[in-house]
């Protein structure tokens, strides 16, 4: 049997806005993916360790505290260090400024999903990346 796509949903930052992370986790699970949700208030180190240990294919970072330009670059740096650069990195939450989005993509975030993105769009993006749709 083909291995399911394994996704880590990570919630860095000190805020409690977990709704999006939880909803996306449930939606990805319903779409047949294996989802590991880190829970709140994870440091970049904890997130990257979890990604390593859980051997995930995709890391989804949910962030709504406004600290994305501090925390995401740090996570990406650690990802690189741990040799996880081949993983699909996506992010969601309140990242809306064009210059932030461009900067984060430049650094290695594959796609950024803003407020109100349908979960289907995220599912399709991940599936497409891993070639699921192409093989159908």
């Amino acid at each position: 049997m083909k291995r399911k796509i394994r996704v880590l949903i990570a919630k860095p930052g000190l805020d409690g806005h977990a709704r999006g992370a939880k909803v996306v986790s449930m939606a990805l699970r319903d779409a047949g993916m294996e989802v590991i949700y880190t829970g709140l208030q994870q440091t970049p180190e904890q997130i990257v360790n979890a990604a390593l240990q859980e051997d995930v294919d995709c890391i989804g970072i949910s962030i709504l505290s406004g600290a994305h330009m501090t925390l995401i670059p740090r996570i990406l740096e650690l990802i690189k260090k741990q040799g996880l650069s081949d993983k699909l990195i996506i992010a969601g939450g309140t990242i809306v400024l064009e210059k932030d989005i461009e900067a984060l993509k430049e650094l290695g975030v594959n796609e950024i999903f803003g407020p109100g993105t349908p979960t289907k769009e995220i599912i399709d993006h991940i599936n497409h990346y891993f070639g699921i749709i192409n093989k159908l």
Binding site: G13, L14, D15, T43, S65, G66, A67, T70
Partner: peptide, 10 residues
């Protein structure tokens, strides 16, 4: 250290 980037944000 874990407060970095969050000071005065919310």
């Amino acid at each position: 250290p874990i407060a970095e980037g969050e000071v005065g944000r919310e």
